[in-house]
């Protein structure tokens, strides 16, 4: 048998060959053992070196508290990493809420400040909010009201009113027939303490 190709030899070395192919290569290897020794000398040397090194390294031992140990290592790694690359742990409910609460609190503060300023402006400069203009509403049709404003007085002229009968001596106390609209709300009649 001719010398098998490199690929087949590697497969043979890895133990991947089976059946007739394995038998052929085994037979060839028995007759060409010297060639094989020369060819794989280097690799065999590496394996021996590897075994020697592995035997020199002591067997690994578990730390007494592995989870704590791992977490400390992870924390140390995270601390060393730049801030942008740090993956934050899942935020708590308060951390989520503060994103909403903080702007709301700032808005409330601004609104409160604005409110106090508005109130102050009213107190300091009331002339801006006090309108001296009078308004008139006349429920009866046919009656017209005219307003005249000056610095000294306000005048309202009511035209279209029914005249008071000349026969009625109002100066002497006469009144047209009917019920008085006056309600019992004069100061003398309102006594909140009377019920106690």
């Amino acid at each position: 048998m001719n010398r098998p190709d490199e690929k087949t030899l590697n497969r043979w070395l890895e133990g991947e060959l089976e059946g007739e192919e394995l038998r052929k290569i085994d037979a060839w290897a028995e007759t060409h053992a010297g060639d094989l020794d020369n060819e794989f000398k280097c690799e065999i040397g590496w394996e021996a070196l590897n075994d020697e090194m592995m035997s020199a390294i002591p067997e690994s031992t578990e730390p007494p508290y592995p989870e704590f140990f791992n977490s400390k290592i992870q924390q140390a790694i995270l601390d060393e990493m730049p801030a942008t690359n740090v993956e934050l742990p899942a935020s708590s409910l308060w951390q989520k809420l503060r994103l909403v609460v903080a702007p709301a609190a700032i808005s409330a503060l601004v609104a409160f400040y604005a409110g106090t300023q508005m109130q102050n402006s009213q107190a300091t400069d009331p002339s801006e909010v006090v309108s001296e203009e009078s308004s008139v509403y006349v429920p009866h049709t046919g009656i017209v009201a005219a307003i005249s404003e000056s610095n000294e007085a306000t005048e309202i002229i009511l035209n279209g009113l029914n005249p008071i009968s000349d026969e009625l001596d109002i100066a002497a106390g006469d009144t047209s027939p009917g019920n008085s609209p006056m309600m019992a709300t004069t100061r003398e009649e309102v006594n909140p303490y009377i019920i106690f």
């Binding site: 008139v136 009656i143 007085a153 309202i156 009511l158 047209s176 019920n179």
Partner: peptide, 27 residues
């Protein structure tokens, strides 16, 4: 009010020294 009837309703702003005069019915 005149003769028990509400004749006019006014939203007037009053201040001391500035009276309001309403010219009412003839008599």
């Amino acid at each position: 009010w005149q003769s028990h009837e509400k004749i006019m309703k006014s939203g007037a702003t009053l201040k001391k020294g500035k009276p309001l005069f309403i010219q009412g019915p003839a008599w």
